[in-house]
Write a protein that binds this DNA or RNA. Sequence first.
DNA 1: CTCACTACTTAGGAGATGCGCG
DNA 2: CGCGCATCTCCTAAGTAGTGAG
Length: 598
Amino acid sequence: HKQEEESDREAEKKKSKKKTEKVNSCLSQVICLPSIMLALKWEEEKYEDGVKWKFLEHNGPYFPANYEPLPDNVHFYYNGKKVKLSLAAEEVALFFAQMLDHEYSTKKVFRDNFFKDWRKEMTHEERLLIQDLEKCDFGELHAMHKAKVEARKNMTKEEKLVVKEANQKIVDEYGYCLLDHHKERIGNFKIEPPGLFRGRGEHPKQGMLKKRIQPEDVIINCSKEGRIPIPPAGHRWKEVRHDNTVTWLASWTENIQGSIKYIMLNANSKLKGEKDWEKYEIARKLKSCVDDIRNQYMQDLKSKHMGTRQRAVALYFIDKLALRAGNEKEEGETADTVGCCSLRVEHITLHELLDGSECVVEFDFLGKDCIRYYNKVPVIRKVFKNLKLFLENKQPGDELFDRLNTSVLNKHLSSLMPGLTAKVFRTYNASITLQQQLKELTNSNVAEKLLSYNRANRAVAILCNHQRAPPKTFDQSMANLQAKIDARKEQLALAKTELKQAKKEAKTKGSSDPKLVERKKAAVKRCEEQLLKMEVQATDREENKQIALGTSKLNYLDPRISVAWCKNMEVLVDKIYNKSQRDKFAWAIDMTEADFEF
DNA sequence: CTCACTACTTAGGAGATGCGCG
DNA sequence: CGCGCATCTCCTAAGTAGTGAG
């Protein structure tokens, strides 16, 4: 009966959503849908605005296994004395013990947060006893965990197969849903297990307890008509609703930030694919009006209104440097990171002259995921002058753009072009950069073609500042490759000598083996090819040391550019996209002709 | 305008998987 | 056939962007 009420509430909510949906519909009218829909059998009914599905059925999320108490021979000690913890306290103690090898378990913020949350899980008596984290000895718990990891690693083939089959069974049961007559893969069908929260960078909440999610915390979203997922035995769902204006199948509220987590479809699903295609179509539309927009913000740099000037400078950065929008964030809730609109005075330094360039802006700030953005950029004089103006009478901690935020900026952008927001510039600039770079490069053999492709991909990754930690084994594997190259070089020299010898013999005394010269020639050629391939690989790997290509490939580069390139260059799509990428971009692989222009 | 809330995309790292080589 | 490394998959945090109330 409660669930009935909930769905009534939902119906009312939907009515108030009507207005929103009108706006969305404008957007889809701007972009013409038909061609791709036919290509992909997406032709079935196009629903009224905002409706994402007509039928949705699934088995609900998969819950992690319950906590298994410690075996009798593993103990926790406080102040040197054996202490048998309550189940709840023990579980959390084990979370900490498992992290003892990580550097962050030594950080004060992490330890303080952990200890505070751990004590909340303790019984009254435990809380009285355990007052100092330093006096806690998790040694045996830690050792047990390490032994378990080791044991898992040393499993026999048969044991591994058993585990694999069990996992497959879970995927079969929970990993798929039925959405409008199609069986679709679910992206994340597992409820996130409890543990200690570790944010990125200097996160103020690191070490806090991320609580176990119960079915009573979970909202299920599915069709009224179909089967409703059955909660685990002895449990009930928080709510079952039937909202077909959203794409999620289940959700719960996470206790660290209080944000909502969703169970959603896999990237290869029709719903996600259409959205992805739409994203690139909007970016292509920007291509057709970007000149006007650029002229406009150049004019705005001279505006009488400070707000307009700030908007223009921000837009200049977003366009030229592919900066993120930079929503404001709640202080103390997350690590201190910024994007364009939230840049502070301390994040830029102005240089009238630097390394032979005039009007250089030096950026140094932490962006998303605490990845450092460091760049020295010559800018046009008008931008430089404006920045000087914005900096006047401000302290390092003050906002650079005090009259601007992302909502003001996006409102302006959507007035210039329907669907235009700050992030569209990133998509547009990434994709157009790839297309340009690929045009400039021509190579003969496949290895070189792929190096060219990777270089173009890399140019985009650098633009978008997609970094990675250098792989732990980088130096070693680089040295190994170099050794292989050296060995091959020697082999090549030898092969050449042998060829010469063979030629000489053939000339002087007529050969005992008439094919010998041919064979030696082939050996030299093979050797040269292998050497080239390795050298190309070495270059590629070196240039890629700290650059992550995956993110741009997956999220910013219109796959049709890549597919068209493959067709033109006669490179197999498999060479640039792995299986899951091919799945995600199936729509582009199906529909793209060699003459595609972004 | 601000704030809270929601829904969705984008992100790097850890661990699992698998592949080439001797 | 096992080993060591590269690649891929999974995980979930951290963004963007929109809505509506006050």
